[in-house]
């Protein structure tokens, strides 16, 4: 059971009130991009064992998208933050480093 606090409306929402939206911070590639970049955008995902960043939508609540950081092994939720960001906020990264020293995810650590 995952419980996320929606950063848009502030409610503590249960997993069943949310829709999963896959991995967070995927940069869109379009017709001008290289084949490798486009393949990465479409297919290549992290699938980590441990710290992961995901998109979720508060489907049964305010209807807004947000990003969340959680652990795929223990389901510990590290935090949530607005979807309108290119990178997780620094205080969240610090919190994760405290809970999971030595973690990495893409170019984050």
């Amino acid at each position: 059971m995952l419980i996320f606090t929606c950063p848009c409306c502030g409610e503590r929402a249960d997993e069943t009130e949310l829709s999963p939206g896959g991995e967070a911070h995927i940069e869109r590639q379009s017709v001008e991009s290289s084949d490798e970049a486009f393949e990465g955008y479409l297919f290549i995902r992290e699938n980590p064992r441990g710290v992961h960043f995901e998109r979720w939508r508060h489907a049964y609540g305010c209807g807004k998208w947000f990003n969340a950081a959680r652990c795929t092994v223990t389901l510990e939720v590290f935090g949530t933050y607005p979807a309108q960001t290119m990178r997780p906020p620094q205080d969240l990264l610090d919190h994760i480093s405290q809970r999971r020293p030595g973690w990495t995810w893409r170019d984050l650590a």
Binding site: C9, E11, R12, A13, D14, T16, E17, A59, Y60, G61, C62
Partner: peptide
């Protein structure tokens, strides 16, 4: 509903959008 309906978080003056069994 999975929403927390305890008086601390849900009372007069509050609104909670959530799920009742299978519907919003």
């Amino acid at each position: 509903t999975p929403a927390d309906l305890s008086p601390a978080t849900f009372g007069p003056g509050r609104i909670r959008r959530t799920r009742l069994a299978q519907v919003a």
